[in-house]
Nucleic acid binder design. Structure first.
Ligand SMILES: Nc1ncnc2c1ncn2[C@@H]1O[C@H](COP(=O)(O)OP(=O)(O)OP(=O)(O)O)[C@@H](O)[C@H]1O
Length: 655
DNA sequence: GGCTACTGTCTTTTT
DNA sequence: GACAGTAGCC
């Protein structure tokens, strides 16, 4: 009785196609539909529906693109039925990290592995190059280029030869050296008990390829749902398939026109070929858009129609929402634009528009700096997404490294970092110490055999013994991660003050880190989340404007959206133009489509003249210049720009 | 010999 | 503002 009431309730929240997707629980299902058509809502209500059919929530697995979106969906479903909180969800990477801690021994490595972020991986590669003496050659590929090659090999399933030829043909003469570095790098990670992001996927797939392990991992999952399937890569699609092999109940959701992670190996063909991969798959299309007004959708449609790959879909507002044509404004420079946007946000605030319903989107995070200072000047609170900084700043990494050596004493990069901070120790001494450290197998041994003897005859013996004491004291398993951080920070504080003079913001950030750590009981979990979950803070219900890269805005929506910096060479990015690679530029175009379709009621487009540099025209973004797109927008003069006195030319010089 | 402080270069997008 | 490379200092 109660159940049918609940199902009835679900039905009222969905249209017919959505309802069909929600209630088709058995077998493979593909939901493919345009932006704002209610795909996310399908996943949310399907989770709820399953649980209300008395499916064990722990047997439902929800794989999404960011952990934040998984958590949000689960949270919303839980509001209707608290059992939903037990649904298992996360990104492919976070799922892999969790599973591998459990089964790593069967694959031949310890469960206490460290996860490298991009910076760590590059540093490890640098060390491998040095070891081989390749760093002497100035022409040799840079470490980040090498990382890209290795990553492409994994994520696009290519050989080193193909990857080098396709992406860096200049380096073809180095191909055999590059292969050597790759081997060295793999060896290095194994010795140090570390995995990079790609390894997480590779090893998870490896585990799933083994029948017995696959059973151990996947038997508990009876229903699997994957969001944003157009942005999965080959390995991830394989993983999904292997996980679903037993029960066959898998739903993929996505929109091929919104594929924006090709640079990371995503293959938008995955979603189109999903029915081939899963024979008997039911394909459901959602036709109506519930998010945006028709004039906003018209811009999206015009962009869609310009794409080389033709998408037959057209976005139509289901409820027939009316609204203003999106406006396009031109500014003299980026500072004018920033000042104008900040002004507009301020007047919206004066009209009591909730700040949560406003977002300012841009192609690259660092171009938002002028805007940030304008908002600060006006006392408008904002939160920045994308352009990942926090965990990458030197001081945060320093502090985290102390914890890493405790969690995994074989983590050479962490030792390297921590030792270099000590006075009187430079690169040479660090290398000597690392040599000693690598031959010991536990932290106490390392301290006894390597650190203590070294400290003996040193000048700065006071600092060195303080270092030793701290490392020893944070090795106690009974301490919480936060308590350990306290000790580390106490030791690190004077080092930081010496390194960065008077910088209060860094101390504040370490305090934030400590607060985050407080939510964890286990050190390993905390460290795993630091690398696998970029989401820094907990829930925050204060009022703030969202500043975000378009990539990080995927799947989200706001009443008012300002899309700034629509300058050819900025958006599309200069990098994509310089290579003149058609598929890169198309990805930028899809990115623009994603950006436009975030807005519910009001969309403002703006650009400034940059003057043509080497890359791009420096004028208006090429995706807007097309006649059919221009017809969907309203070009506005900028009264505000004239109002601005030359004050900000001042700030321009100072920036 | 090894450490440190200084200078010039370059900055897409993210798990 | 972070990093690589370099010159000078202990
Ligand atoms: N059946 C419906 N009736 C009314 N509103 C709906 C319905 N389905 C979805 N919506 C609303 O439409 C908006 C967009 O939905 P949703 O975020 O699920 O779309 P999406 O397809 O996931 O979009 P994107 O591809 O951009 O991620 C949301 O505000 C959602 O609440």
């Amino acid at each position: 009785m109660q159940r049918s009431h609940a199902v009835q309730n679900i039905k009222t929240q969905l249209n017919a196609a959505q309802y069909e997707a929600v209630t088709t629980t058995e077998g493979p299902v593909l939901v493919i539909a345009g932006a704002g058509s209610g795909k996310t809502r399908v996943i949310e209500y399907r989770s709820l529906y399953l649980v209300q059919q008395n499916v064990d929530p722990e047997s439902i697995l929800l794989l999404t693109f960011t952990r934040r979106s998984a958590q949000e969906m689960i949270q919303r479903a839980s509001r209707n039925d608290t059992r939903c909180a037990k649904i298992d969800g996360g990104t492919f990477h976070s799922f892999a990290s969790k599973v591998l801690r459990r089964v790593s021994l069967s694959l031949g490595f310890s469960g206490s592995f460290t996860i490298y972020d991009e910076g760590d991986a590059e540093e490890a590669i640098r060390r491998c190059c040095n070891k081989m003496g390749y760093d002497q050659d100035k022409e040799f590929p840079k470490k980040n280029e090498l990382k890209t090659v290795f990553s492409v090999c994994v994520n696009k399933g290519m050989s080193v030869d193909d990857a080098v030829q396709r992406m860096y043909s200049d380096y073809e003469d180095f191909t055999s050296e590059i292969k050597t570095v790759q081997k060295e790098y793999m060896d290095y990670k194994r010795r140090n008990n570390c995995l990079d992001y790609d390894d997480l996927l590779i090893y998870l797939k490896l585990a799933l390829d083994n029948e017995e392990l696959r059973d151990r991992i996947s038997s508990r999952y009876r229903y699997i749902m994957v969001d944003e399937f157009q942005d999965t890569n080959g390995v991830q699609a394989d993983i999904a398939q292997l996980l679903a092999r037993k029960n066959g109940n898998i739903m993929a959701v996505g929109d091929d026109a919104q594929s924006i992670y090709g640079f990371r190996g995503a293959n938008h063909l995955n979603i189109l070929e999903f029915p081939k991969r899963f024979p008997g798959c039911k394909v459901i299309k959602l036709e109506e858009n519930y998010r945006s007004t028709q004039p906003i959708l018209d811009v999206g449609n015009a962009v869609l129609s310009n794409m080389k790959h033709k998408f037959e879909k057209r976005l139509v507002s289901g409820p027939g929402l009316k609204g203003e044509k999106p406006a396009l404004r031109r500014f003299d420079d980026i500072y004018e634009e920033a000042a104008w946007v900040a002004d507009r946000v301020q007047s919206l605030r004066a009209q009591s528009v909730p700040m949560r319903e406003i977002a300012i989107l841009f192609r690259t995070a660092y171009t938002s700096m002028p805007l940030q200072s304008e908002l600060i000047k006006k006392g408008i609170r904002f939160k920045l997404f994308g352009g990942r900084k926090f965990y990458e700043t030197a001081h945060v990494r320093d502090v985290i490294s102390y914890l890493r050596i405790v969690a995994n004493p074989a983590d050479e990069l962490a030792w390297h970092r921590v030792l270099l901070l000590l006075p009187g120790i430079g690169t040479r001494t660090v290398e000597r110490l690392l040599e000693l450290i690598s031959s010991e197998d536990s932290l106490p041994h390392i301290i006894d055999k390597a650190i203590t003897p070294f400290c003996a005859g040193q000048k700065h013996s006071d600092v060195l013994s303080s270092f030793r004491t701290v490392v020893q004291s944070i090795d106690s398993p009974s301490l919480t991660p936060a308590a350990r951080l306290d000790k580390v920070i106490a030791h690190y504080d004077p080092i930081m003050k010496a390194k960065y003079k008077k910088d209060a913001s860094r101390a504040k950030e370490l305090f934030m880190l400590r607060n985050m750590a407080q939510r964890y009981d286990s050190l390993k979990e905390f460290l795993a989340d630091v690398s696998v979950d970029p989401d820094k803070e907990g829930p925050d219900d204060s009022e703030y404007v969202t500043l975000s890269t378009v990539h990080s805005a995927k799947g989200l929506e706001w009443d008012k959206v300002f899309l700034i910096g629509l300058v050819d060479g900025v958006f599309p990015s200069g990098r994509s133009l310089i290579e003149n690679n058609a598929s890169d530029i198309e990805e930028e175009q899809r990115l623009f489509y994603v950006a436009v379709t975030r807005a519910k009621q009001e969309l403002s487009l703006s650009f400034y003249d940059k003057g043509s540099g080497e890359k791009g025209s420096g004028g208006l973004c090429r995706f807007i210049v097309s006649r059919n797109v221009k017809e969907t927008i309203e070009e506005r003069g900028v009264a505000a720009a004239i109002r601005r006195p030359p004050a900000k030319h001042f700030s321009k010089r100072r920036r």
